[in-house]
Structures are given as C-alpha cells and as structure tokens.
Design a protein around this nucleic acid. Sequence first.
DNA 1: CCAAAAGTGTTCGTTCTACACCCATGT
DNA 2: ACATGGGTGTAGAACGAACACTTTTGG
Lengths: 240, 240
Amino acid sequence: MANLNPHLSTDCVVFGYDDKELKVLLVEREMNKRGSVSNFQPDLKLPGGLVFNDELLKDAASRILKELTGLEKVKLVQFDVLDSLDRMDKATDREWLEQTTGLRIDRVVSIAFFGIVGVIREKNCKAGTHWVKMSEIKNLPFDHEEIIKRALFAIRQSLKRDGLLFELLDEKFTIHQLQNLIRIFYDEETDSRNFRKKIKKLDFVIPLDEKQHNVAHKPAQLFRFDRKQFSQFSNTRIIF
Amino acid sequence: MANLNPHLSTDCVVFGYDDKELKVLLVEREMNKRGSVSNFQPDLKLPGGLVFNDELLKDAASRILKELTGLEKVKLVQFDVLDSLDRMDKATDREWLEQTTGLRIDRVVSIAFFGIVGVIREKNCKAGTHWVKMSEIKNLPFDHEEIIKRALFAIRQSLKRDGLLFELLDEKFTIHQLQNLIRIFYDEETDSRNFRKKIKKLDFVIPLDEKQHNVAHKPAQLFRFDRKQFSQFSNTRIIF
DNA sequence: CCAAAAGTGTTCGTTCTACACCCATGT
DNA sequence: ACATGGGTGTAGAACGAACACTTTTGG
C-alpha cells in the first residue's frame, strides 16, 4: 500500500508577514541535468509533491511541507482542487517530476492547501527556501501562480468568515495586533477608535485582566478568542 | 489515456425542493449477486463514479450525474474532497465498485460537488432515481451521509455569500419567490415588509417593468439579478 | 524629552426591527 | 365571496463613520 500515488499531489501555499508585507514560502527546484539555465533567479515553486496511497491528504501536505522547508505544525486548510488537463504540459515540469519521483506521469490532480505562519523566522527554514513578497512572485512552474492567486482569495474569505484571523495571533493578543493583521491581509486602513468599539461588542473576543510587559509604549490590554462563541456568531446569515 | 482512473471519483449532492421541503437526489445501487437483502427499501446512494483520465472533474461529475439520473445542465460546484482511508471499508461497498467498474480498487479519493435544481420534475429523471426528503435519508453506503451533511453546510454558505440563490430562480422572479427559497434552505421566517425593503436597497436586484400573469392573486412585480453588481458587493468584508 | 502605541466620546446619518392593514386577481 | 399572495409606513433602537487629543511606557 505505501506507494506514491501517481495521480494525486498536494501543494501548499504558506503565507507569512513581516510587519508590513505579505509573503509566500517557495522552494528551489533542483533539476538533475542542467540546473536553471537562462535565469539568474533560482527556479522556485510551491512546496508540493505526490501523496502516498495510505496517507491522508492533509498528512501528505504537512509531510511534504516539512520535507521541503523544515516547517512543522503549520495548520493547513484544504481550499481547492487543480485538475486541468494541461497543468503538466510544460516539458521541463513533467521531466522534473518524473526525475524526482521515478514514476511515469500522465495526469496529476493536485489538492491545494493554504497555511499561515504568524512571524517569519527565516532560521526555522531549510536552505533553499525563500519567503517571496507577493508583488515579486513570477515565472513559477505548473499552475503555481494560479494556485497562489486562489489561495489569497480563499484565505481572505476564510479570515473574515471562519475566524482564522485568531489562529494567527498568540493565545493572548492586543486589539492593535488584530487590526494590524487585518491591514496586512486586506490592504485596508481602519479608524482605530471605531475598530476598538466594534471589537469590544464582539462577545467572542474576551478581555483578560492582564497587560503587556516590556514594551516601549503604554502597555495594552490583552484579549483572547472564544471559539464556541464565535461559531454561533458566524452561523448567522449575512446578506439577507 | 481514456481509461478510468482507479483513484479518483466524483460524487454529486443534488438538492431540490418542492414548495415546502428540501430533498436530495439518490439513485438505486444494483448488486449483481443478491440485490438488497435485509432491507425493504432499495439500496440508495449518491450519484457518483470514477473519473476518466482525460476528463475534468466537473465534466466527470456532470457525465455521471446524467448517466445515472438523466439530469442535464445542472450547475455543479466543487465543495469538498473526501480522502479518509476507511471510506471503502464496508465489504459490500468495495465489492460493488469492483463489480461495476471491473477494476481492482484500493484507494479512492472522491471530489464532492453540489447542485440544485429549482423545481423537481420527477418525469425528467430516469427510473431508479429518488428524491428523498432530508429528514428521511438513512443507511447510505460509503461516507455518503457525511457528504450530504457537508454539502448542506457548504450550500448554505454559498447561497448567502456567492449569490447562488439567484441561480435557482428563473431569470425573472418575484420577491416572494426569493424569500421562499431562503425559508426553505435556512429554515427561517423573516418579516416580509422588512425583507422587501432590504431587497429594494440591493442594487444587484433589478426591478423590471413587468408583472406576473395568470396567478390567483395580485400579480407581483418581477426582478432580475445582476451578476456584475453582485460581485462587487460580495467582495466587501463581513465581520470587521 | 522623545517616540510609539494605548485609550477615550460625541454627533449625525443610516439601518434594523416590530408591527397591521388594504389591494388585485382567479376560482 | 373567498383565498392567495402583493404591497405599503412609521417610530424607536442599534449601528457605523467621521473626527483629535491625552496617557503611559522604554529608551
């Protein structure tokens, strides 16, 4: 049973941010033959690969992410399935896959996952991994640019709708940190007074009797997120 | 290339409603050997099956739906991937699949689609298909009950968020019809005066200079849905 | 004392809710 | 005449947007 399935792969789009900019985690693809030829940049791709036959898709995604980047314990969410018939059409792409897997490849359907790491610590990643700014991503193989586009869309939906925002914050967080996260993912400025008022009315954001320490400004109150309250809240209708 | 892929299947959850009740389209599963034994009911399942290697998943889902039920031109939306390792564990299920496909089956990952047909016309369906009330669905094979549960969840999200509601109505519809649809899918009553006011403020619901004919009550004004206006609208944030 | 973020209130316009009755049509 | 859904208005509460200044801490 424990063979690679030549028809199923996973790809992970892991987002990270360092204060101001949204980035995506890419890995270098190594070609046996010639390396990258006409390019100064290394040949980058999303971390992804084939699934074992006795392996759940999310386990495969986590395993492959760890193998290629060193990152562990990233919560991955399945958000799409890539099944177009021409996604393996570039000769170099297919060649690369056949070389690295030793399998004959005809059709591969890929299950796409996204994940977010709160703070980018480059040192946690293996050599050959790169955090690339969204605005500087180009020339990716397969349909990886399309996957990233869809991942950003899906993650924006999921952040507002499914409470994923709170998974990105520490257990205890400040209102400012929450607002900052929103700014980064949605590219939007909001008035901090109104934002505070709004948050304080949400009963799934619970104030703690605790403040920040050792910060170079007035220490802020800490809050925590209550999943149960949130899931009630988010089940209400939106438009009608 | 045009072989069945033994690792990939699709399943469709097609919802329909007749005025008051939400129903799901199921098909009879025929066993070569003994038919259904200890059961008075026919052995029902979701319409689904294996994908050809040169076939897009949504095309496979449509093809299989048509083959098994006769229904055509149902808009199908991919909403989940079923990959658990034990979904083929019931002996009868695997036996049935191997019999009907002639393939040796180990692992099958299934891509799940939902669809909705506005009005149930039983006569459009082949013999052996059944519209079953949500409340009366039981004893389905594989993980089909789980799929239906997730489909209902996904479709509720999608109806409010992605404008799928309007796909269910005729090109021209009345406010009452829209409200009725919401009542059926969400099991919720809303005040019709307030509902009207709300709808009239939505600029993607466009009033026509036209009324119903031949109805046994005051004929209602007709409206149409504008996709472009809607997509602008639905891109705005919801919680924050 | 400077830099950085925390924290606070009011006004005004908009939107939401609750609520009850008459109207146009087909049978 | 009756059944069926169509269609209307108002008052009060809740909410959202715009707006500027003082506070607390570490360096």
